[in-house]
Amino acid sequence: MTGIPTALIAGSGALPAHLARAMEAAGTPFLIAQVEGYEMAGAWHWPVETFALERLALLFDLLHARGMQRVVLAGTVHRPRLEPERIDPRTAQMLPRILPLLAQGDDGALRAVIALFEEDGFEVVGADAVAPGLQPPPGVPTAAQPSEADRRDAARAAAIVVALGASDLGQGAVVAQGLCLAVETLPGTDAMLAWVADVAGACRPDPKGAKGVLCKAPKPGQDRRVDLPAIGPATVEAAYRAGLAGIAVEAGGVLVLEPEETLARADALGLFLWVREP
């Protein structure tokens, strides 16, 4: 095998399996360490080590023993509620640094975790380092193209996402005819689009006007090695059910899972995908 031995620290969702497949195809030695209480999708044919956040120091020992040199964090993990009785002595020494940052929000918690891995000698890399094909180049690769109204809606949605990110909230928004129909919060993109499909359709002033755009982008100042927003075929289908014209994602800041299938679904449903320069 070739490449730098890499530990995949996995939360829930589809992204960890995509990264594991990319490393497997590239011949990169890797180990999957699954956060206890979360389950990555599609991990059935790889061995998985499960670890508790209360015993993070023991995870570091395991990764060193297995020869891991890099770490990539992927998947969803909500801010944990730690159980004091499970904390080992070495992890307990880390807590005075971790706990204040956990209270600062998701970005603070992620920065704390990255720092701990780096101080223990691991290089922390982003998803693009192990699966560069998940970030498409700027442009509109779909048959459908955004109209001028769609472009205005995308710009408005992008500005809203910037405002959300400044408050450490979500990474997505839906705008139609200049009106914000929904913003992404803790339940995520799928829940936001389901709400738009069920409720927000009647909010469009002109039933024959612009259908609306989903915009996804990272938070301003976000460490792009972790928690990048992602879309995939399911996002395209949810946007279609929500009656939208298409999806705009920030170039270099959003992962497109199963890119070929995502584009195929968009073309089949008549939606555009715009990889938009910020």
Rank of each mutant, 00 (worst) to 15 (best):
P259T: 09
A202D: 15
A239T: 10
L15W: 14
G188K: 00
R66S: 12
L110I: 14
E85H: 14
V162G: 13
A127C: 05
A43F: 15
T28G: 03
P100G: 10
C203T: 15
P187L: 02
L63W: 01
L269Y: 06
A22T: 03
L15Q: 14
W274Q: 09
K219E: 03
P220N: 08
L214P: 02
L62Q: 04
T50N: 07
L273R: 01
P138M: 11
L179E: 09
A191C: 03
L269D: 08
W274M: 08
V124F: 00
D106V: 09
G170W: 03
V162W: 13
V213C: 05
R66M: 11
P207Y: 11
A239C: 14
W46V: 13
A191I: 07
I160D: 08
F117Y: 11
A154S: 04
I160S: 04
L257N: 07
P218D: 10
A43T: 12
L214K: 07
L95N: 09
R204V: 10
S167R: 12
D267I: 04
C215K: 06
E250N: 08
Q145L: 15
A103T: 11
G201M: 14
E258Q: 09
R66F: 11
T91V: 10
T28F: 02
P220E: 10
A166P: 06
F60A: 03
A166W: 08
G270N: 13
A268N: 03
A159P: 05
G172C: 05
I9T: 06
P47S: 11
R70H: 07
A17H: 03
G170D: 05
F117Q: 04
V140R: 06
A109W: 01
W274R: 07
V256A: 09
E83F: 13
D267P: 02
A154D: 01
V256W: 06
T262D: 10
L193P: 00
R66G: 08
F272I: 08
G121L: 01
Q93P: 15
L169R: 14
V183Y: 04
A163T: 05
R152I: 15
D267R: 03
A200H: 05
A217V: 11
A33I: 08
G13N: 04
F272G: 00
R86S: 15
F60Y: 09
E260G: 07
R66E: 12
V249R: 00
E83M: 09
A202S: 15
F272N: 03
G178T: 01
P47V: 10
Q69F: 01
A194H: 12
V162R: 14
G11P: 01
W44V: 15
E261Q: 15
A52V: 13
R70T: 02
D128P: 15
E54R: 02
L244K: 03
G75A: 09
A74V: 02
G253D: 02
L56M: 07
E54V: 02
A194F: 14
L95M: 14
E148A: 13
C203G: 15
V113D: 00
G165R: 02
E148C: 15
A41P: 14
D61A: 14
G3A: 00
L244C: 10
A191E: 01
A92S: 10
A20S: 07
L193W: 00
V213K: 01
Q171I: 06
E184H: 06
